[in-house]
Nucleic acid binder design. Structure first.
Lengths: 210, 210
DNA sequence: ATTAAATTTGACCAGATGGTTAAATTAAAC
DNA sequence: GTTTAATTTAACCATCTGGTCAAATTTAAT
């Protein structure tokens, strides 16, 4: 079973992207080295530049993908049109828990790079097709019909996201401050899927039960 | 009023530290350039190395200071011995709001650098004199005496910190997603001092009023 | 098998970057 | 004013880093 040229090409590109992702995600744009990416992919630097002409172009490719991965479930729920507020919250928390278990560096990477070049955000948001207004409206509806206490809907959204991803962004710090081992922290993060949901619901639902 | 040599020396050192802080905080260790720090301080690169022998030494100095600034009010409250849980929460939120208004890049800087070299954390925590156990105990006491609903005290602490600093860590992203201008976001952050406190209390206090 | 095109490599280059050094300047002590 | 020590500078240096290129290798088509 020999691979033809195109397949190998695809494989190499895939290999490079995976390697670049690992390196950029961990070290950021400035800390990443093209040589290290090449080594990680098992190729040499010239081939790296053959596939992606420059560090910036390669980074751009990686970062766009990372940025889009950053909004997993929010979109899923808004697609449906009218989702319950409980569903929205659960979807966001579960979505983050799932993706961040696989890519724990993702949020620190995205947020860190955006801090260093905030001018890119507008375009990235546009390109990603995210519609903040739609999500805000779901929350506002839940407030209007008395399901949720009166508050700025954006504040609730910020809180949900904060509670979901902060333990990952600040993972090493939080982990070694309050937990004894990596394993215990991981199990905390798993349980947290439920406890954060309850934490939020206790705070905002007018009729918690029902 | 001419300054003597020692004063000028002090001034130059102060000037360098201020400049280094600005540059490192915004660009991180890898993205920072010694030349840029020198320019920012209005001196040349050789003098920079005369005062702080290497980039790493200078960074270490800056980072330690940043890390210690990261825990403003938590310590103040634990000093007292037995503080109410409400006081603890308010102190943490107010403390962060205050310091982060002046140094908005601080949390992203600290967290980002710690992600890239987590092995430093243990030593930094030791050197900073922070006693996580003391803070956990305050929360645990409040749970034991029925003031706060039953939960892992560490989880509450993570939530408080998350809600306090996330809007700063992810500032550019959150701001341009949900707000129309920088000014509006700033005013949101100010109001948030109260709303986050209420958000947390609604969730955890057994007798919210009283 | 030969040809032609795409893929891969080793060697190399220019500029950036952290760091050094010897000389010049400045300030304090005498 | 001269001496002495600390401070500041311009000019360099070695290494790292992103990027290029011509030659070699591999693959598909004939």
């Amino acid at each position: 079973m020999v691979k033809n040229k195109q397949d190998k090409n695809q494989d190499t590109e895939e290999l490079i992207l995976k390697a670049a992702n690992r390196v950029f995600e961990k070290k950021g744009y400035a800390g990443a080295r093209m040589q290290e990416i090449a080594d990680e992919a098992g190729i040499n630097k010239a081939l790296l530049h053959y596939y992606f002409r420059s560090k910036e172009k390669l980074f751009d490719r990686i970062f766009r993908e990372a940025f889009s991965q950053f909004w997993p479930s929010i979109e899923k729920v808004t697609q449906g049109g009218m989702a319950g507020i409980r569903d929205l919250i659960k979807a966001v928390i579960d979505g983050y828990t799932e993706i961040l278990a696989q890519r724990p560096y993702l949020p620190a990477f995205v947020v860190g790079e955006l801090n260093r070049s905030p001018e890119r955000i507008k375009e990235l948001l546009l390109a990603s097709g995210i519609k903040p207004d739609k999500i805000i409206k779901i929350v506002q509806d839940a407030i209007d019909n008395g399901e949720v206490v009166n508050m700025d809907p954006r504040e609730l959204l910020v809180n949900i996201i904060a509670l979901s991803i902060f333990p990952f962004i600040a993972r090493p710090l939080v982990s070694s401050m309050f937990w004894k081992s990596k394993g215990e922290y991981d199990s905390f993060l798993q349980k947290r899927k439920e406890t954060v949901y309850e934490f939020i619901c206790r705070s905002i639902l007018v009729n918690p039960d029902q």
